[in-house]
C-alpha cells in the first residue's frame, strides 16, 4: 500500500509511517480503548447486568428524562438554527458578525459555567428566583432548568452547520421561485429546505448526541434527585458512586451506543453533504 501525497510530492516513507503509527496509536489508546472498556465491563456478566440495571425504576426515570429533555431541546434548536442561518445567510444587516460571535458563546464557555449562569438567573438567590418561586414556578433543580441549560449548550450546532451551507448557496433559487409566483412558505418548503436538508440533518444529529450526553451543565442545575431530576449521564455517576460499578457501565454503554450510532449517521450525512456541495459547484459552473 503506498501513501500518496495530494500534491504529488513524496515525504520520506519513514515520515509517513511514523505519522500514521502515531495517529493510529493515539486513536486506539485515547478513543477506541475506553469505548471498548465500557462495553467489556458492561457485558462482563452477560446481559444479566442490563436486566438488573434496568429493574431499577431510577434507571427508567433517567432514560425518560433524557429523552424528554432531548425531545424539547433538539426541535427548539432546529427552529432557531433555521431562523438564524436564514437571517445571516440571506439578509444583510448591521451587527451580523456580532450575532455570529454570540451564537458561538456556548462553544466557548465551559458547560459548568453555563450551568452556574442559570443558577445565578433563576436560583433562589438569583435575579428572578424569588419572583418565580412566589409564582410557584420551579426552574432550577427541576426539569425546566435541565431543559434550559441543554438548549443553551446545544444552541450552536444546527446554526453553525447551516450558515456556511446557505451562504454558499446564495438566494438565486429563492428569487427565481418568488418571481415565478411562489409564496414565502412555499419557497421555504420547496426550494430552501430541500437544498439544505442534509446539512440540517447533520446539525440535528450532532445536537441530539450532545443533548443526550450533556453532564456538566446539567449536573449544576439538576440537584440530582434520584428518580426525578437525574438524567442518564447523572444516573451513571450516581451508580458509580454507589459502588454499583457493573450497572454504571451498563448504563454508560447505552449512552456510548447512542454515540456510536450518531457517529455512523454523521459519517453518512457528511458524505451526503459533500456530494451535494459538489453538485452545487457543478451547477454554478
Amino acid at each position: 500500500m503506498s501513501v500518496e501525497n495530494k500534491h504529488g510530492i513524496q515525504d520520506p516513507l519513514w515520515v509517513q509511517w511514523t505519522l500514521i503509527t502515531i495517529t493510529i496509536g493515539f486513536v486506539a489508546i485515547f478513543l477506541a480503548l475506553p469505548v471498548a472498556i465500557i462495553f467489556a465491563e458492561a457485558l462482563k456478566d452477560g446481559l444479566k447486568t442490563y436486566a438488573i440495571a434496568l429493574k431499577d425504576p431510577a434507571a427508567w426515570s433517567a432514560i425518560h428524562l433524557t429523552l424528554l429533555v432531548t425531545a424539547i431541546s433538539v426541535p427548539v434548536n432546529t427552529v432557531f438554527g433555521l431562523a438564524a442561518s436564514w437571517a445571516i445567510a440571506k439578509f444583510e444587516f448591521k451587527g451580523k458578525s456580532l450575532l455570529l460571535t454570540l451564537i458561538d458563546i456556548p462553544f466557548a464557555v465551559s458547560p459548568v459555567i453555563s450551568g452556574f449562569i442559570y443558577v445565578l438567573l433563576f436560583g433562589l438567590q438569583g435575579w428572578f428566583g424569588q419572583t418565580l418561586s412566589d409564582w410557584g414556578f420551579k426552574v432550577i433543580f427541576a426539569v425546566p432548568g435541565i431543559v434550559l441549560v441543554t438548549i443553551f449548550v446545544t444552541f450552536p450546532f444546527v446554526a453553525r452547520e447551516l450558515i456556511p451551507l446557505m451562504q454558499e448557496q446564495g438566494n438565486d433559487e429563492e428569487q427565481a421561485a418568488i418571481s415565478l409566483g411562489a409564496k414565502g412558505w412555499q419557497t421555504f418548503f420547496y426550494v430552501t429546505l430541500p437544498n439544505i436538508r442534509w446539512g440540517l440533518l447533520y446539525g440535528v444529529i450532532l445536537c441530539n448526541a450532545r443533548a443526550m450526553g450533556e453532564f456538566g451543565a446539567v449536573s449544576v442545575v439538576s440537584g440530582s434527585i434520584r428518580g426525578k431530576t437525574a438524567t442518564l449521564p447523572l444516573h451513571v455517576e450516581v451508580l458509580y458512586n454507589g459502588f454499583n460499578v457493573p450497572a454504571a457501565f451498563a448504563m454508560a454503554s447505552l449512552l456510548a451506543l447512542v454515540g456510536l450510532l450518531t457517529l455512523a449517521l454523521k459519517t453518512y450525512l457528511e458524505w451526503k453533504v459533500k456530494q451535494q456541495r459538489r453538485e452545487l459547484a457543478l451547477v454554478n459552473e
Binding site: 443558577v119 436560583g123 433562589l124 438567590q125 418561586s133 420551579k138 433543580f141
Partner: peptide, 8 residues
C-alpha cells in the same frame, strides 16, 4: 449551596 439556591 443547592438548598440555598432553591433545591426545595
Amino acid at each position: 449551596r443547592a438548598v440555598m439556591d432553591g433545591l426545595e
